[in-house]
Structures are given as structure tokens and as C-alpha cells.
Amino acid sequence: MSGTVSRTGRSEVDRLNKGGTIRTLMRRPEVGAFVVMAVVIVAIAVVSGGTALNPLGLKNNLSIISQFGIIATGACLLMIAGEFDLSIGSMIGFAGMAMAMMLKWGLPFGLGPATPLSAFALTLVMTLSIGWLIGFIVVRSGLSSFIVTLAFLFFLRGATEVSFRLINQSTQISGLPDYKQSDWFARMFGGESLGWFYDIWFALGGNLNRAGVQWVTGFDARLVWWLVIALVAYIVLSRTQAGNWIYATGDNPESARANGVPVDKVRIGLFMFTAFCATIFAACQVFETNTSDAAKGNLKELEAIAIAVVGGTLMTGGFGSVVGVLFGAITFGLVANAVFFIPAIDGSYYRVFVGVVLLSAVFLNEGIRKRITGGL
């Protein structure tokens, strides 16, 4: 009898624990993004006949996914803190212009020719300074970050175009030396990485072109940058006091300030972080393609925010997940790139997809928030 009761008791406990686990998972901010990602991966793999996941398809898809992931990670942390940055796309164009012009015309103030390292370092100083200025204006003026960063969206885009025309007589710079072939720093951004993955694939009898030789030799370097940025952001959010500060700032800034959280410093630091992510994005583009264009980064700020929302980040702050952004970036990257390996798909359907998924994610995230807060 006692044994039967014991087994029954354990079964009941197991059942309750299982239910508790499911309920816990349903409260995770990234659960919706994971479901959408899984459906998109299966659908595109089937419709493309597997070409989306062959060696070249995988490389190309992860290249687009990494671009989205880099800027969406910065947008996610800032949104968790309750702020927005609409200047990310313009910052990408500005940073790319600055690097390309220094590489072509030399460092400012007659300091001599630029190297990839010096051009990047000086550009990063400028973009971080602009990020600091945006954050300073937001916290000191009390204005909405939406309005302040909207102003910088126009300012940076206009300054980029004006600078291109005044100095280069064109809104594009092309034909830069292929620095990644000879310079280690340029190769960190524009070269290839994780070649061992494709070497193993080749050794196992795959990754072959029609001539029977290795087809693809590595991923774009931006994949490593995305993974590193995402990992650091995840650790900061989930394992450090700074992560608690970020969540507290977005949840209730006045209460956080009363409890000793440096709310203003958190906000300014996160605006600088989005500027950093935009600069990394721009560096990868410049050193990979050896070109720059004033139109680079156009609308990327909206895509970054959309990915963060689809990944489970609340528009109101205080709730979000870097893991969800990873799922969202994979989803958006696959759909955006689908037109290249599924010719029957019109590229404009990508925007339709973004609109539908974004609106659905907002409702889903609000439902999760209400379950967590008890309907508050």
C-alpha cells in the first residue's frame, strides 16, 4: 500500500512539475520568437529544396542574419531600459562614410595616411561620442528618446550625404584597396571565420562543388562579431548587476533611482552601445566590399526594433531577452534572403511578413506580460 501511494505521489508531483515547467516556458519572452523561427526554417528548407541550407546557402543566410543580429542586440538592451534609438541606420551610414573617407584621403588634420585600425578607431571615437551626446540630451532634457533620436536620424543622414558630396563629389566611394588580403585588422571584419566548420563538412564528403573541390571555405567574419556581442550582452543581462540595473531602469526608473541604480548612466551607456553596434556593422560592410555608400543602413533602425519586439522585448521596457533577439534575427534573415534562393518569391513579401509578424508579436508579448504581472 505504501509503495503504491509513494508511486502515485511521485506521479502527481511529476505531473505538477511538468505543468509548472510548461507554464514557466510559456512565460519566457522568447517563446513566440522560437516558434516562428522553427516554422520559418522548416518552410524555407522545404520550399527551397534544401538549397537554403547547403554550404553556400548557409553562409549567405548567416551573413544577413548576423547583420540583423548585431544591431538588434543593441536595440534590445536599450529597449529593455525603456528607450529607443532611431538613429542606428543613419549611424551605420555615417560610420561607413568616415572610415572609407579616411582610408581614401587620409586621417584628418594632416595626420598622414590611414590604416584600417586607425580609421576604425577614430570612427569609433566619433560614433561613441555621438551616442553619448544622444543619451545626455535624453536624460538631461527629459525629452522622449523617440524624438531625440529621430532628430539625429535626419542629422546624421544629412551630414553623411553632404560630406560625401563636398569631399568626394559623389555619395559613394568604391575601389578601395582590398585591405583584408594584407591587413589582420581588416580581415577581422571583412574576411572569413570558422573555416574549420566547412573543413569538417568537406572531410565528411560534403561541401563539394561540381569540380569535386571544396566549395565554401568559411563564414563571413561578421558572424563571429554577432556571436561575441550577443554572448556578452546575454552575460551582462543575466549574470551581472548591470543587467539588473538595465531591467530596473526600464521597469520603474523612479523606483530604481530611489534604490541606488544609476539610471542616467545606464541610459547613456546603452545609447553608446547601440552606436558601437552600428560601427561594427559598418566596419564589416566597408572591409568586406571595399566600398561605402551614403544610403547604407537605411531603415535598419526599424528592422532592429522589429526584431527586438519579435524576440520578446516589450515596447514599454523592463522585459526582454537576448536569446529572443537571436531567434528573431534568424527568422528575419532567412525571410529577407529567401528571394535569392526561391525565385518565385517577390522580395516585397518580406515587408508584408515583417508587418504581420511584428503586430502578432506585440499582442503575444502583451499577453505574456499580463500573465507574469497578474494582469497589471
Rank of each mutant, 00 (worst) to 15 (best):
G96R: 03
F276N: 08
I235H: 04
D199R: 00
V335S: 08
V35K: 07
S87T: 06
L156W: 01
F109P: 15
V322G: 08
C284V: 02
A256G: 09
P262D: 01
I368R: 01
L326P: 15
L143D: 13
G324D: 07
V323A: 02
L128P: 15
K59H: 12
I268E: 01
F155C: 03
I305D: 13
I71P: 14
I173C: 01
V266Y: 06
E303T: 10
L204S: 13
R15I: 03
V228M: 00
M272H: 10
I235A: 13
L359W: 08
V232F: 08
R10D: 10
S144P: 15
Q172F: 04
V125I: 12
M99N: 11
I305T: 15
G19K: 14
S141K: 09
F68R: 02
E192I: 03
T291R: 01
T160H: 07
G297T: 07
L78A: 04
R165L: 06
V263T: 05
L143F: 15
T127Y: 12
Y350L: 05
I305F: 14
F154R: 00
R210P: 12
T331K: 01
I246T: 11
S321I: 06
L53Y: 12
V36D: 04
L133W: 12
T274E: 00
N209C: 02
G243W: 11
V213F: 09
S6W: 11
M91F: 00
A114N: 14
V362L: 12
A38L: 09
N54K: 05
I368N: 01
T73D: 12
I307S: 05
G74L: 02
K300V: 06
D251E: 09
A283K: 04
E12G: 09
Y350G: 02
I372T: 06
A282K: 03
L117D: 05
V335T: 05
P55E: 00
G50S: 05
V139P: 15
G312Y: 07
L166E: 10
A72S: 14
F34G: 08
G195A: 01
I345S: 11
F146W: 10
